[in-house]
């Protein structure tokens, strides 16, 4: 078995109906893995940008890139080598947890408390995906009720 490695791809596609399902169908149909997928329109253009975090051997990643290129509405596939990568997470805590402890911890991960209601505290962080993972480990003792991760976005340096 060839070693599997994590890769982030940016895929520039024409904004049209069903383009997303063409891509996800390709991944499921050919047995490729999607770790996370984000998509949003590129401002002032007819294109959207998808950021796909995936994993596989060098050969598999090469195939993914080539197979994506083959889809007609795909303009460009960028296989990132040197990139800046960020991910956001939202976390809901019970109001009984320590506001200041949570706030301090969030601060260390580019985050803060964004909402405090009658029953819950909502915090956000934005950092490298692996650091977001660490953060989510470290807040376990504050009994998080709900966690949402955005999936990675990336730019080539």
């Amino acid at each position: 078995m060839e070693a599997s490695e994590r890769r982030v791809l940016s895929v520039i596609v024409i904004n049209e109906a069903s383009v997303l399902s063409r891509i996800t169908d390709l991944f499921s149909g050919r047995g490729y893995n999607i770790e996370s997928l984000t998509v949003a329109p590129i401002p002032d253009s007819k294109y959207s940008r998808l950021t796909i975090a995936t994993s596989g051997s060098v050969r598999v990643i090469e195939q993914i890139t080539k197979q994506l290129h083959k889809l007609i509405p795909i303009y460009k596939v960028i296989e990132h080598a040197d990139l800046v990568e960020k991910e956001m997470a939202l976390i809901k805590f019970p109001i009984t947890e320590s506001l200041s402890d949570i706030d301090a911890l969030c601060g260390a991960y580019n985050g803060r408390i964004v909402n405090v209601g009658e029953n819950v505290i909502i915090a956000m962080v934005a950092d490298e995906p692996c650091r977001v993972g660490h953060f989510l480990e470290s807040i376990k003792r504050f009994n998080p009720k709900e966690i949402v991760r955005s999936g990675a976005v990336a730019l080539e340096r």
Binding site: R59, K66, H69
Partner: peptide
């Protein structure tokens, strides 16, 4: 003619 056919199975 299909780049995806190249090095798909045999390098």
């Amino acid at each position: 003619i299909d780049p995806a056919s190249i090095s798909k199975l045999v390098n």
